[in-house]
Simulated scan of single mutants.
Amino acid sequence: MSNEAGALDAPPEGLDAVLPDVVDQVALARLYGEPLFDLPRDLYIPPDALQVFLEAFEGPLDLLLYLIRKQNFNILDIPMAAVTRQYLSYVDEIRASNLELAAEYLLMAAMLIEIKSRMLLPPKKTAEGEEAEDPRAELVRRLLEYEQMKLAAQRLAEVPQYGRDFLRAQVYVEQALQPRFPDVSALDLQSAWRDIMKRAKLVQHHKISREELSVREHMSIVLRHLQGRKFVEFGELFDTTRGPQVMVVTFIAMLELAKETLIELTQAEAFAPIYVRLAYTPAS
């Protein structure tokens, strides 16, 4: 039993080569699956590999306005000493990392120092006896204009923008499902109507109806026209408004009256007008 217990307590063969020398530390990392307890001596980490920016400013005016609004300073009465001190501390931080970016901020820093120096001097009066303009007036004007433009830009940024806040809905319709109607003008309609009228004339029908006309009735009509008149021109006895059928029946009625010697047809000479009158009946 003692031999078996000793065999269980002893580490297996080859395990010493796997276990690290220091086992009471937490591994910093794993490299290819193996625990890494110490950083490699030849590992190089660039100084600017990790940078943290607490505030991002778009320029010197933006930084200066931020410092004024953060501490609730009156922008018309800027405490130049406090603002210049805070501004220079920020410029010192960016000079260590980005000298090109710091050049623009250094120009504003020089302006702040100049304004601070001019405020320490006694004010000079102009030739008209008026007091000189406040050295901070130009800076205040630029700050107010910049703040107005910044607020306007923020309001514009709040407006919904295509691609950022919304996307345009697009519906794809199959070409076969989308009918394409032609554009029709008034001239096209007029031409189409003329074509329809031409076709209608080619296929139009003429219906002939039968009308019953009485020769005896027209004989009475002719006699009534001649009643009380000596002579009536032949053409006046025909009614041209009622069609050729009535004119034919009227002509037959006149022939029948002439046959029965009820009327007389007279003509003075050849090609002269023909006159019609009632037949002369001698008195008894």
Rank of each mutant, 00 (worst) to 15 (best):
residue 162 Y to S: 14
residue 137 A to H: 04
residue 157 A to M: 04
residue 161 Q to V: 07
residue 146 Y to E: 08
residue 175 Q to N: 14
residue 164 R to C: 03
residue 131 E to A: 12
residue 143 L to C: 09
residue 158 E to N: 07
residue 153 A to N: 12
residue 171 V to D: 11
residue 170 Q to G: 06
residue 164 R to I: 06
residue 167 L to Q: 11
residue 173 V to L: 02
residue 161 Q to F: 05
residue 174 E to T: 08
residue 174 E to N: 14
residue 146 Y to R: 11
residue 143 L to R: 11
residue 170 Q to D: 07
residue 176 A to D: 09
residue 146 Y to N: 14
residue 136 R to L: 09
residue 158 E to G: 06
residue 144 L to F: 04
residue 153 A to I: 02
residue 150 K to Q: 15
residue 136 R to Y: 07
residue 135 P to A: 00
residue 133 E to Q: 08
residue 139 L to N: 01
residue 139 L to Q: 02
residue 146 Y to V: 07
residue 125 K to T: 11
residue 145 E to P: 11
residue 146 Y to G: 11
residue 148 Q to N: 06
residue 152 A to V: 11
residue 134 D to A: 07
residue 141 R to M: 04
residue 144 L to N: 09
residue 135 P to S: 06
residue 152 A to R: 13
residue 128 E to F: 04
residue 147 E to P: 03
residue 150 K to P: 14
residue 125 K to D: 08
residue 167 L to Y: 10
residue 131 E to K: 08
residue 168 R to W: 09
residue 127 A to D: 12
residue 147 E to I: 08
residue 146 Y to K: 10
residue 166 F to E: 03
residue 163 G to P: 00
residue 172 Y to M: 10
residue 138 E to Q: 12
residue 131 E to I: 09
residue 164 R to W: 02
residue 136 R to W: 10
residue 176 A to Y: 09
residue 176 A to C: 01
residue 136 R to N: 05
residue 129 G to W: 03
residue 155 R to K: 12
residue 142 R to Q: 15
residue 130 E to Q: 13
residue 160 P to F: 05
residue 154 Q to A: 08
residue 146 Y to M: 11
residue 135 P to W: 04
residue 130 E to S: 02
residue 142 R to I: 07
residue 174 E to D: 15
residue 128 E to P: 05
residue 130 E to W: 03
residue 152 A to G: 08
residue 145 E to V: 14
residue 167 L to S: 09
residue 170 Q to F: 01
residue 169 A to V: 12
